[in-house]
Design a protein around this nucleic acid. Structure first.
Lengths: 346, 346
DNA sequence: TTGTACGCGTTATCAG
DNA sequence: CTGATAACGCGTACAA
């Protein structure tokens, strides 16, 4: 900028005023400055600017795994929204690890991000502290954080799973396997609650042996499904609480020599682009990823635009059951009666 | 830092020296500083530091679409690599738009990123200029940029497609439809060249009417496949030059009442996690995403670590044909003979 | 309308 | 081993 000022034979203050439009600069000087800028190829240094004005026009975004199609989509939408608003976004993946998350948030804060969107993992005291002490707005995504008072956008997980399980029950299924992640994140708790509520509403009893817990990865889904399918009294349907795990479950079904939906019905949480192209066309619970991403961005942008003192907002969106063809009526399920026989033998 | 200095009754210079280990600080002062830091909860301001030292420990990454599974994976790997190295990464999606790309690179440069990884779109004079003028190291990813002298990691697209088409030819296919993106990016040119070379090697003649061009999106694949399948002399196999377009192609096949692999064989570029779980299990060309991401990160990190003057490096990796069950011998293809009849009628 | 002087938080230099 | 001071590049009172 100094160079520009010299080349244009004006002061740096004038150049700054011209660039930021703070005050009107005379035609003549404007022209000289404009030319000098072009000649020098001057670019304003955003870092120096940030140091002065205390804002970086950069936000931080942390998600567990970007390869999980749900997060892929949400990240994509959020990125676009901030791009439009002239913000850069720093992306971090926690890999479901609390220490990573804390480190990354620290990293982001050190770099003076103006705001943070986090799909948290675990119960982070540090995150809570950040929300309360650091003066950067934080919006929580997908996963609740009960003891933290800040903006958030979440799904009505209970309702979504209730609907899905009820659909299965209406098809006649009574033994519905359930593959879940650890209950230290709210979606897993709420989804399980939806499962139990649907069972209860249908007059079915909850059977702990039909529930298998994993760590949200494909391999965990595989193991869980293997165990479920090896049960004496095999479930006739399986619900997977996330997408990567259902891939593992499908592989288990294949490896064990069964097929879907003939032998077993499948529903999973989170839709994906291929769902209605390949067979079986999976019945899924689709989250409104577009809305989720846009709302999260909107909440943060609103704070960034100055609305700091409004009480924290909680947006809860609805999932949608995408009925395709991975579920069959119990009566049409191969060996639907076998379990009964097996049971009576035991 | 000033506060810390005051609280510890030392100068800021000493605090800085202590924090950075620039010079040894006496036990006593170290203790006082340490305590002051803890009490104040002092965190070093990375922005101010960047302004002074001229480095941000942040890199920029631009890709066309993060929802394209290939880029999802590569971004994930790159993100992890830089995370390990203590760098933050700013992610931008160009949406295959040259103006977006230029804007985003400018944005990144303004923020003084230490380096750039770009899966470019179009022929950007600005990108070329950036590489030559700006003194930030740039590594090109996936897409070549002939007239730009910088590090890059690309795939041997020619060989990969040659192998895939040859596989199809060996199955007896003679009319192989080809769905491509615009030829202004190198992979599309090279893949097409591989297609033609394979045809030539097999003594088959290239038929322009079997080639359809789209804009890399799912919808384009749909349109292209529809046109191909409506040809009087229908192709017996289709190759899609990327992943999103094959999803569209599969939908077209479904909507037109055909099925894969019975009526038509399919191969597409880029593998995806579901490929071997659902039917048809798509035969694909898998790129070594892990290696691509790691190498790209490695190339940039090497420059960042001071190796600035080495001549630019070009890493070319090999794709792998993942043979599954979306391709059948021509003899086993339903209506394999029909085209001949149709032709003779015309 | 334009210019001067100062501060943002750090680090590097150099004198003590 | 420590401290004063000058940058880094920019924005902004305030004075002219």
């Amino acid at each position: 900028m100094l160079h520009v000022a010299e080349a244009a034979r004006v002061s740096v203050a004038t150049v700054s005023a011209y660039i930021n439009g703070t005050t009107t600069v005379s035609q003549e000087l404007s022209a000289r400055i404009e030319q000098a800028i072009r000649e020098i190829g001057y670019k304003r240094n955003a870092i120096a600017r940030s140091l002065k004005v205390g804002t970086t026009r950069t936000v931080g975004l942390t998600v567990p795994h970007i390869t999980n199609p749900f997060f892929t989509d949400v990240v994509s939408v959020i990125q676009q929204a901030f791009d439009r608003a002239g913000y850069a976004v720093m992306l971090c993946c926690t890999d479901e690890d609390l220490n990573n998350q804390d480190d990354q948030i620290r990293l982001l804060l050190d770099r003076m991000v103006d705001g943070l969107i986090v799909a948290r993992v675990g119960d982070s005291a540090f995150l809570k502290e950040t929300v309360e002490r650091a003066n950067v707005p934080v919006v929580l995504l997908d996963r609740e954080c009960e003891n933290v008072d800040t903006d958030r956008v979440v799904l009505d997980n209970h309702q979504a799973v209730f609907e899905a399980i009820t659909y299965l029950v209406d098809l006649g299924h009574k033994r519905i396997g359930y593959i879940t992640g650890s209950f230290d994140i709210s979606p897993m708790r709420d989804r399980m609650a939806g499962y139990r509520a649907a069972l209860l509403a249908a007059g079915l009893t909850f059977d702990q042996s039909l529930v298998r817990s994993g760590d949200l990865h494909e391999a965990d889904g595989y193991t869980a499904a293997m165990q479920l399918l090896s049960l004496h009294e095999r479930p006739t349907a399986i619900f997977s609480a996330n997408n990567p795990m259902v891939v593992g479950a499908m592989k288990a079904i294949r490896d064990i020599g069964l097929s879907c939906p003939e032998d077993i019905s499948i529903i999973c949480f989170d839709d994906f682009p291929w769902a209605d192209v390949f067979h079986p066309q999976l019945t899924t619970i689709a989250q409104p990823v577009q809305a989720i991403g846009e709302q999260a961005a909107m909440l943060l942008l609103d704070r960034l635009n100055g609305n700091r003192d409004a009480p924290s907002r909680r947006l809860v969106l609805k999932g949608r059951l995408m009925v395709r063809n991975s579920c069959r009526p119990l009566s049409a399920t191969t060996g639907a009666a076998t379990p009964k026989i097996a049971t009576s033998l035991v």
